[in-house]
Design a binder for these strands. Structure first.
Lengths: 234, 234
DNA sequence: TGAACGGATGTAATATTATTACATTCTTTT
DNA sequence: AAAAGAATGTAATAATATTACATCCGTTCA
């Protein structure tokens, strides 16, 4: 499982990747989508944020500064992030958001298929689909605005759209905390669709979460049982 | 979402199915497995509890009164039960358990494959496997004591044993709150096994949770949009 | 027998995650 | 410019879960 995303659920690491300059720019008058940020987002992240704003707009949603900041922090993190970690990381430059602020942003991002919630961790990760669109063609899903797709899933089993099914599969390592999204195949989702059809159940969202040991940690445990360490899954 | 009455996750319904007689019998001197209960468990439930005690014993676990009571309440409920609901229902006849009591019992039952936790509801349901053993052959899994099975899954994809993989699939209706365990096929679990093998991931537990509308509620929504009601799923 | 041990339970306090309710502000529409 | 609707701010609280430590109880074994 090659995952760029590293160790333990980033619950409380990285004090806050804030810029030296403390200007509260993200609340400025500029369009939310391209507003400057106080969080030192990488160029790559900013690119994905642009892409996300476009996707939102097509669905009739607004990528406001709050939502942008939250999504940016999730994209930037190297592990699943909890709501209260986001809250802490948002505490920069005179802003002190309260829980509802973050939860509202998270709800929006979930509804628009930009992030996933990992139930077993009560934490959030970006939808890989966004990254895939970020690299290369920015408009892979060229469905018309306000006409979200129904049913026809992309190869990775995701759909960006408030009305579509948003599903994801994760492998969660208990030793290192690494999380891998299985997005390279529609096999699992297809099977779920079949089962639901058999049961006349209308699927709206689905999650598959497998907990266990990634290749690396399983190896370690084999050698020295009980030894668990930090490290990237796989 | 307006969901007026009943079959919601049984979070706070059924005040407490206690017997008229308030004797704290379950703490008596008799063996935990066949101790009398203060909760008015049905004969069927008591049968399943017996069966569960046997399974536990084989795995070197002890079915204590606490654990028995918690499992009984979960078996008896007609919907997923939350930890704090269990806590309330246990508040009968002079006993006032605290959260750790319930969580410890739940952990035990989870480890021994007697119940499942539905992540999206933070609630617990019995493992259908237990019921299946309850009807008919009580000893379907005749693996030797202290020799839990590894890998070879039963048809429903479950394994009763602290060392085996315990996996389950659920359909959760957002309208009526009904939950259906898909246990009639190993298809999904088999596929997960395959994926994990490909990724060299050691699966220890897995959950599949699909949220949407059950057949009944989907029909209702079709007729009168927005109308969602009580009713058991399926 | 009884001391030692380990598993199980009791208890208080607290941590973590999430929501409700309502006031305010901002954006878009009219 | 007023109205409507979406988004945010704020305080309080609900719901879920864990930690830490004391006690009890059954088993083992000296």
């Amino acid at each position: 499982m090659n995952m760029p995303r590293t160790p333990h659920p980033a619950r409380s690491r990285n004090p806050a990747p804030a810029t030296a300059d403390g200007a509260p720019v993200s609340t400025g008058g500029v369009s939310a989508a391209q507003a400057a940020d106080s969080y030192g987002f990488s160029e790559h992240t900013r690119g994905l944020l642009e892409c996300a704003a476009t996707l939102c707009a097509r669905q009739g949603g607004r990528m406001t500064p709050q939502r942008r900041d939250v999504l940016g922090l999730i994209l930037q993190a190297d592990a699943p992030v909890g709501a209260y970690d986001l809250l802490e990381r948002l505490r920069v430059s005179d802003r002190r958001p309260a829980p509802p602020t973050v939860y509202r942003a998270l709800d929006f991002l979930l509804e628009h298929g930009l992030i996933h919630r990992i139930e077993r961790l009560s934490a959030f990760v970006p939808c890989t689909h966004l990254s895939h669109e970020g690299e290369g063609d920015t408009h892979a899903h060229d469905f018309p605005a306000s006409q979200p797709m129904q049913g026809g899933a992309s190869a990775c089993g995701h759909e960006h759209g408030a009305c579509g099914v948003h599903a994801a599969q994760f492998l969660i390592c208990r030793a290192c905390g690494g999380v891998t999204e299985i997005a390279d195949t529609p096999r699992i989702l297809d099977m779920l669709r079949t089962v639901c059809r058999e049961k006349a159940f209308t699927m709206q969202s689905a999650s598959v979460e497998v907990e266990g040991l990634c290749a690396t940690c399983a190896g370690r445990q084999g050698k020295a049982d009980g030894v668990q360490g930090a490290g990237t899954e796989q």
